[in-house]
Each structure stands twice: as C-alpha cells, then as structure tokens.
Design a protein around this nucleic acid. Structure first.
Lengths: 142, 142
DNA sequence: ATGACTGCAAAGACTTTGCATCTTT
DNA sequence: AAAGATGCAAAGTCTTTGCAGTCAT
C-alpha cells in the first residue's frame, strides 16, 4: 500500500472520486473533478482506469446519457432517475427494486441473469419547476 | 397516403422495419436490412429518420450496447434482457413490470416520470449453453 | 531488467450535418 | 416557387490505442 502509494496515486484518486460522489460522472467529469488535485492528469488515464475498474467489477456503467457514458461505484442494486432536461442522474434509495424478478427472467428466457437495472426518466424536481420547454439548465450536465 | 407513397417510401420502410422485427436493431442493422429492397438507401437517411421518429415518439431508444444505440418500436412498457456475450436484446413479455413504482419515484424525488426501463443483463440461453468464455458468437450482433 | 502506470497525440467508431438534387404541392 | 426527403462526403464527438517516458520490484 505504502509502496504503491505513488505508483497508483492517480488510479486510486479516480476510484476514490467515483466513490465519493453521487453525480454518476462521465469520464470527462471525473477528469475535471480531479484536475484540482492532479493538474497533470490525462483524460486517457481516466478512460483507461474506468475501463480497468469496470472489468474488475469495481464500478459499473449506467449506460449513456446524451451519448456520454456514466459510471457508478455503488454496486448494490438501486434505482436511478435520469432527468432528460439537465442530464442529472439521481439515486432513488427509497424505491425498492424487485429483485425477485431475476428468477422470473431466467425462467422466462432460459438465460442467466448477472445484473439488472431499473431506470426512470423524466424531469427532476428543479427542471420540472422551471419547465418552460428549453427552460433553465438544458443539457447542463451536473 | 397514396400521394406520399413515393416521397416517404424510405421513411416508411424504416419505420416498418422497426415495427416488424424483434431484434431491437441499430441504425446499421436497419440499413443492412433495408438494403435488399432499397439498394440505394443511405445510412445518413436511416440515422436522420431514426432521430425523427424518436423525437416524434414513434420509437424509443434502448440505450447503447457496446457503444451502439439500439431502437425499439414497441412503446408499451416491457422488460428487456441483454446478452453480454452476443449482444442480442430480447423482449420479456412474461415478466411483469412494476408500473406502480412510478408513483413512488415521483414521491421520492419530487420529479415527474415520463418513462421507465427495466433491463436484465446476462447470458442468453444459447450463449449460456456454449459458454466457454469467449465461446460461440461473441460480439456477433443479432 | 521487467512489468506497470501515465501523458500526449493519433487513430477509431459511431453519429450528425452541409449541400446539391429530386419529388411533391 | 416552396417545402421536404435523400445521397454523398465532410465534420463532429466520444473513446481507444501506440509509443515513449517514468516509477517500482
């Protein structure tokens, strides 16, 4: 750990960044967030490490919003809400995910389920309040 | 209709293609499928019309699989299964989608829900049967 | 020395857009 | 004429990759 501290400094920072935010950031968002403490960090390094963590199962991809991939370090199953206006992705910890369905799915299609994702789409509270179409923070990720 | 038959020939063919398949095709898959009857159809036309239909609410996007956007003309809510091995997207009409959750979501986050998507990921029946890692039809979309 | 991580720039892959052409009203 | 649809090629955007340099074992 100590020994690796320097070698994995950026790698660790990237994972920590994911784990300490609820923004479900994109590669570029991570890059931006880390810039303060690591001014020389490269976007390629972010992409490479996100890919690494994903293959290690340390983070998961939530798919793309407006063509940009978003990531989540919270691995326990939970529900998401994506705002089509501002692009925000919210966790909905209070909404219960019907995990029992996995059995039904396996029975229904004969396959093997690894994960499931329940995502609601719509307008978040703030965009709904200021919702003349094209209103406030359209496209303004985060 | 008659009058528009020619002008909208390709547009109509694209929508019909979506409506008559359960492959949840990508733009390129649509293009490929239409080539037989419309040898001169351009990929740009497919993209433009998919975008058009999407904004009209005639089709929906299922998000991306391996970086490629997939579409569905079935608008009634239903559950999907995505095979991580072959990329196939299957409908699961037998699995019931808990629509009542939309209320919970709106209550929980104060937003307004437009749609929801429940997607299971794993190995489909055939990939699971032939599932030495890297087995059969890895990445072979469709 | 060998293996691993990174920055930079180039390459790649999917999608969108500008422009000229053709069709329909 | 005016509006809309299409093909082609160019441009755009996000992501991946090759290579040289650096650090740790």
């Amino acid at each position: 750990m100590e020994a690796n501290a320097k070698q994995f400094k950026k790698r660790n920072a990237i994972l920590a960044c994911l784990q300490h935010t609820d923004l479900h950031p994109s590669a570029e968002m991570v890059h931006e967030m880390l810039r303060e403490k690591h001014p020389d960090i490269s976007l390629a390094t972010v992409y490479r490490n996100l890919s690494h963590f994903k293959s290690q199962g340390l983070i998961q991809s939530l798919g793309t919003v407006n063509g940009i991939e978003r990531f989540d370090a919270t691995l326990s199953p939970h529900v998401h809400f994506i705002c089509t206006s501002c692009g925000r992705i919210l966790d909905l910890p209070e909404v219960e995910l019907p995990l029992s369905l996995s059995r039904d799915v396996e029975r229904s299609c004969g396959g093997q389920v690894h994960s499931c994702q329940l995502t609601f789409t719509g307008l978040c509270r703030s965009c709904r309040n200021s919702c003349q179409p094209g209103g406030e923070s359209r496209q303004a990720i985060q």
